[in-house]
Structure formats: structure tokens, C-alpha cells
């Protein structure tokens, strides 16, 4: 057998809400961005690996971070008060740019945040959707795409292409937006929620860059499903409680994040090129980090005694996964180089 996966927990003196790998340009160690809070303050920390005990740099935030994403050059964090903070991934806190919360932007938590080339999309619980882009002179401009006036709230957002993005939220399932068609919702999916629950909440959406017509969605009650724009009426269940036998349930609680996992080889390579879903990694409130695949038993990577609030797969080194644990620690999982492929 190949190397077994190794997992290491690093206790930190604050609570970690979100964690992401930062693109490391140099060979000198690897870097993490973590949105943390303690009793008195919320901050964005730059943490070094393998020993993340003391932050290399920090940026204070006005309230707890609700979303954190990084593009190759920029790190962006949105907060529970509704502000957006952009800073270069070199973590030069002096050149950070903020879009303050308020009537002109968001009021309340902004959980949907994603980078699509030059533009950032933000979707908040207040029902507003913005596209934020550079104004050319070092400032940023937030353009309002939609104001739901609180009639619906968004919890997740993801770009599919430079003109299309998907959002999801409380009870409203998933929407597909097309900027070329007047910034409008062009498709809508109710989602799949089992156990007699009429609706559930979407927490996370991921879209694979090579298959831009498919979103994978994670939400309440252990639900994970894929939605293919070509077959809009039939979302494909990947996991969920009380679904009719078509998918196994990997957990029963909230699925906080989902990401396509490039590292795990699909067990059937030929069919994966056509109709099958690619493997998806998820983390949950009941402490599960697992890989789910269509028509396969879920592969559990971690079963922690506390919630896993966030995780990220290193884009440069996809065998490595970092996760934020509820009990004030981060965990780094290194998967054996060939463990998955040999199975």
C-alpha cells in the first residue's frame, strides 16, 4: 500500500471560521489565510506551515468573516456586517481595500463570495447581489446586480464563467444568473431535501472549471446534490437524509462546504468523462470530512469530535487538505501520494 494519509491538528488561541490555502510563489514554506475571531476581535491571519502557531501578518476586520476566497493575486473576505475587504495575497495590510457595509452595498452577513477573473461576486443574506471590480485607479466599484429587498437571502455564490454565476440560499435553492441576459436569473433549481423537510438551506456551491454547466451544492440535513443545467428538472442526489435509496447519506447535519476533488480518481475513468459526476469533498457540522461520488459509498477521511467549519484543497498540491475545526484548531490532512489511485 502507499503511504497512509496523515493528519495533524494545530491548536490555536482563537476560533477559526474559515481557512484557505494561499498560492505560494516561492519555495519557502506554504501559507494559509485564516479568518479568526476571539471574544474581542475578528481578524484575517496569514499563517505559515508546518507550524501555524504565530501569524506572520494580520488584517483586522470590523466583524466576523463570513466568506473568504482567494484569486491568484488577491485575497477577499466578506463579513457578517456586510463589508468586503480585498488585499493582495502578499498580505500587505497597508494596501487593503474595503467596501464598507451600508445602503450602497450589503447590510448583514455576506456569505456568497467568489472571484471570476477580474470581478468578484457578492451575495448576501439581505438579498442583494453585487459585482465588484477594480475602478482602474486603485479603487473598487460595486455594481448592484439585484436587490431582493429581503424577500430572499443568499448564502453562497460561485462563478461558472465570466458572464454566469450561481447563487443559493435559505429555501430558495439554486439560481443561475447570466449577465449577458440583463443580469437576470435564467434557471432555478429547488434542490432536493429529504425527510419531509419542505426546504433546506444551501451553504456552498462549487463549479468545476472543466464542466461549467454543473454545480454541486451542499446544504442542510446532510444534503449534497449536483445540478446539471442541461437537465434542470432532475438534480442528482449525492448524499442526503431520507432520500429514496438513490444516494447514501454521509452525514445528518449541515454540510458547510463542498469542493470538487481533483485528487481522488473517479473509480470509473471512462464514464467519468461523460455523464458521471466528479468526486466531491465535503465537511460538516458533525465533524465529517469525506469524499462523495455518485453511486458510490462515501469515503470518510476524518470523523472529528467537533464541527469542521471550513476546508480547502491546495490547488497546487491537491493531496493536501486544510480544515478549520470548531475547537480552536486547524487540521492539515496529507493524503498518501497514490493511496486513492491504487484502490
Amino acid at each position: 500500500m502507499a503511504d497512509s494519509p496523515s493528519f495533524r491538528r494545530h491548536p490555536l488561541p482563537f476560533s477559526i471560521d474559515l481557512v484557505r490555502w494561499l498560492p505560494s510563489s516561492t519555495s519557502s514554506g506554504r501559507l494559509l489565510a485564516a479568518a479568526v475571531h476571539d471574544l474581542s476581535s475578528s481578524q484575517l491571519h496569514l499563517l505559515p506551515l508546518p507550524d501555524p502557531a504565530s501569524p506572520l501578518a494580520s488584517l483586522p476586520l470590523p466583524s466576523r468573516a463570513t466568506a473568504l476566497r482567494c484569486s491568484p493575486s488577491v485575497l477577499a473576505a466578506a463579513t457578517s456586517s456586510g463589508s468586503l475587504h480585498l488585499l493582495p495575497s502578499s498580505f500587505d495590510a497597508g494596501s487593503a481595500i474595503s467596501v464598507p457595509s451600508g445602503a450602497g452595498f450589503h447590510v448583514g452577513p455576506v456569505r456568497g463570495l467568489d472571484c471570476g477573473g477580474e470581478e468578484w461576486v457578492t451575495a448576501g443574506e439581505d438579498g442583494r447581489v453585487h459585482v465588484v471590480s477594480g475602478g482602474g485607479d486603485g479603487r473598487v466599484v460595486a455594481k448592484r446586480v439585484w436587490d431582493g429587498k429581503g424577500m430572499s437571502g443568499y448564502e453562497a455564490a460561485r462563478w461558472a464563467s465570466s458572464a454566469e454565476f450561481a447563487t443559493g440560499g435559505a429555501g430558495c435553492g439554486v439560481q443561475w444568473w447570466d449577465r449577458r441576459k440583463g443580469d437576470a436569473v435564467v434557471a432555478q433549481c429547488k434542490g432536493i431535501w429529504g425527510r419531509g423537510i419542505a426546504t433546506g438551506m444551501v451553504h456552498s456551491i462549487d463549479i468545476h472549471p472543466s464542466r461549467k454547466h454543473i454545480c454541486v451544492v451542499g446544504g442542510s440535513s446532510g444534503t449534497i446534490f449536483a445540478w446539471d443545467l442541461r437537465w434542470q428538472q432532475q438534480p442528482i442526489p449525492l448524499s442526503g437524509v431520507g432520500l429514496d435509496g438513490t444516494a447514501q447519506s454521509v452525514c445528518e447535519s449541515e454540510v458547510w462546504e463542498v469542493l470538487f476533488d481533483n485528487y481522488t480518481q473517479s473509480s470509473d475513468i471512462i464514464s467519468s468523462a461523460s455523464t458521471r459526476m466528479l468526486p466531491v469533498m465535503m465537511c460538516s457540522e458533525d465533524g465529517i470530512l469525506a469524499i462523495v461520488e455518485q453511486d458510490e459509498r462515501p469515503l470518510e477521511l476524518l470523523a472529528e469530535p467537533c464541527a469542521i467549519n471550513s476546508f480547502d484543497i491546495d490547488p497546487q498540491n491537491p493531496s493536501d487538505v486544510v480544515c478549520a475545526l470548531e475547537w480552536e484548531s486547524i487540521g492539515v490532512l496529507t493524503r498518501g501520494r497514490d493511496a486513492m489511485a491504487e484502490e
Binding site: 439581505d126 431582493g148 429581503g150 437571502g153 435559505a170 429555501g171 423537510i197 438551506m201
Partner: peptide, 17 residues
């Protein structure tokens, strides 16, 4: 709470739940 603060959708969601 959400209803009072104008997030009607979220308010309705919780009442439904």
C-alpha cells in the same frame, strides 16, 4: 428576528421550518 429586520425570506424560511 429576521422578519423584523426586513429579511422577509429568511423569516418565512424559519417559520416554515
Amino acid at each position: 428576528f429576521h422578519w423584523k429586520h426586513g429579511r422577509k425570506g429568511t423569516g418565512v424560511y424559519w417559520f416554515q421550518q
